[in-house]
Design a protein around this nucleic acid. Structure first.
Length: 496
RNA sequence: GUCGGUGUAGCUCAGUGGUAGAGCACUUCCCUCAUAAAGAAGUUGUCGCAGGUUCGAUCCCUGCCACCGACACCA
């Protein structure tokens, strides 16, 4: 048994969580549930990134203190996690002074002791709208193109981190897949920009940024987001206390992130870890963005989809299914109600739900609901097909192609439907009961495998199928097991 | 500007140096265990454009066009 530590990015708490983060949570959840199924000692972390001036601004707008504001958002995030049926083992918040801050402080100190932080005067053009420095080359006619304002020239003294010192080694590790970046295009992307990466500012003056973690032994400075936020992956495991949990689970096996924060996870964070002498994560999985009806999700356009509403309307597993199947892992994908309903009727109702129902009904009506399963009755062809699909399913999950893995499950469902039609058990029952039993044995075999493969993706649905079949998930051997089917109204009633 | 990606059926996408594929949609047939579900057969393509290499290119090379992304200490 091996360990498996997986994280999502921590979501920024300047507003309610959006469906993009929901998608990230769901993907990580599939990977975590899958690993548990394989028997790995799995630890699945998510959380919230709660500092920074954007949060302060949002809190001001809401007329509350930052802490009150982020408490509320963190609660919403946790509610979303509950509703999405996410199996995270922990939830870390960067404003947690007990659990998180000691790690951020310790990491800072270690980096500093290693000589990788130095104070530098920084003169630059500061855009008030951006709340950050912008480059001269970004200006259009002397004004910030985004805010149409002239930037002020200000001088600030900050700590800078010697990223350059670690570039070569990081490049080597990424090239050799020691630090694996999936998909390949993201790996290429980061390798292309690694040469030009400059040293990074790691702090802000306290007068500019109060809402954050202080720099140790320097009351004038606040830690900037890198040591503040990225260290959550360490703090949650109890790094500062040298917790047994940390020893057991670090390094992370997978950091699941969006494509927008690849740079920070593939460059800054590894460099920080190298500076502190910690092991690097094994892999970074990068997912894309969800567009809505082909358009970028944006609050101004007003096309933001609230995941809670979606779930309220269709149900958790329907939303999980749609996102996992329709949006390729590692790429962008599009959401639309039309596509969702097509997937629902085509795949869930006509496919999975209907196959389950026809198998259950036959056993219910022809056998009084009971069938004693005999493994020896499973046909060679059926076994071969199922095992082949299972292998492909595994391969795809391991390659972070969750949509493909799900596609394989539906291939087996299609095979099951075809099997039923070809064997026509409703005819067999009239003249050959042994043949009927054999067919239903095979049908149960297929459905049982389908249910197992769905466990990581659609946990509730998988349970429903097990229940409908009257199957015991924990039974060691199915041979001679007595299935007692429970006929219900059906898993996914068709939408009109 | 630099780097990278994409362009294949009505839609979403797979794919290979040798007669173009899947799912959805559509048409016809068939079944009746099942959620007006399932199964079978079928229709649809200048594989972005123009050149080149090759016996042969959708695939390799060059150029072009279109769209997208990264190169910004926004998180």
């Amino acid at each position: 048994m091996s360990k498996f530590y997986i994280t999502t990015a921590i979501i920024y708490t300047n507003g309610p969580p959006h469906s993009g983060f929901a998608f990230e949570l769901i993907q990580a959840d599939v990977l975590a549930r899958y690993r548990r199924l394989l028997g790995d000692d799995t630890f699945f972390l998510t959380g919230t990134d709660e500092h920074g001036s954007t949060v302060v601004k949002a809190a001001e707008k809401a007329g509350v203190e930052p802490q009150i504001f982020v408490d509320k958002i963190a609660k919403q995030v946790q509610e979303l996690i509950r509703i999405l049926n996410i199996s995270n083992d922990d939830f870390i918040r960067t404003s947690d002074q007990k659990r998180h801050w000691p790690t951020a402080m310790k990491i800072w100190q270690l980096i500093e002791q290693n000589g990788d932080l130095s104070k530098k005067k920084y003169k630059g053009l500061y855009c008030v709208g951006h709340e950050s420095f912008i480059k001269k080359t970004d200006l259009v006619n002397g004004v910030c193109p985004l805010h149409q304002t002239e930037p002020e020239e200000i001088e600030e003294e900050n700590y800078f981190f010697k990223l350059s010192k670690y570039k070569k080694e990081i490049k080597r590790k990424i090239e050799s897949d020691e630090l694996k970046i999936v998909p390949e295009t993201r790996k290429t992307e980061i390798l292309n920009l690694i040469e030009d990466a400059e040293d990074v500012s790691f702090s802000r003056s306290r007068s500019v940024l109060k809402w954050g973690i202080p720099v140790p032994n320097d009351p004038e400075q606040t830690q900037y987001v890198w040591t503040d936020a990225l260290t959550n992956y360490l703090s949650a495991l109890g790094y500062a206390d040298n917790d047994a949990r940390f020893k057991k689970y670090w390094p992370a096996d997978v950091h699941l992130i969006g494509k927008d924060i690849l740079r920070f996870h593939a460059l800054y964070f590894p460099a920080m870890l190298m500076s502190t002498g910690l092991e690097l994560p094994k892999a970074i999985y990068v997912h894309g963005f969800i567009t809505i009806e082909g358009q970028k999700m944006s609050k101004t356009v007003g096309n933001v989809i609230d995941p809670l509403e979606l779930i309220k309307k269709y149900g958790t597993d329907v939303v999980r299914y749609f996102l996992l199947r329709e949006i390729p892992s590692g790429e962008d994908g599009d959401f639309s109600y039309k596509k969702l309903e097509e997937r629902y009727n085509g795949d869930l109702a006509n496919g999975l739900g209907n196959l389950t129902q026809r198998v259950v009904t036959l056993i219910d009506t022809k056998l009084n609901g009971e069938l004693i399963y005999k493994y020896s009755l499973v046909e060679k062809e059926v076994k071969k097909k199922t095992e082949y699909i299972f292998k492909e399913y595994i391969k795809n999950i391991d390659n972070f192609a969750l949509h493909e893995a799900l596609g394989r499950v539906w291939e087996l469902i299609g095979y099951g439907d075809k099997y039923m039609d070809e064997k026509a058990p409703w005819k067999a029952i009239k003249h050959d009961e042994a043949e009927f039993l054999k067919i239903m044995n095979n049908a149960l075999y297929i459905l049982y495998n389908v249910a197992w493969m769905l466990v990581p993706f659609l946990p509730e649905t998988a349970d429903n199928i097990f229940n409908a079949m009257g199957a015991d998930r924990d039974v060691k051997s199915l041979d001679d097991y007595k299935f007692k089917v429970q006929k219900t109204a059906g898993l996914f009633p068709r939408l009109q």
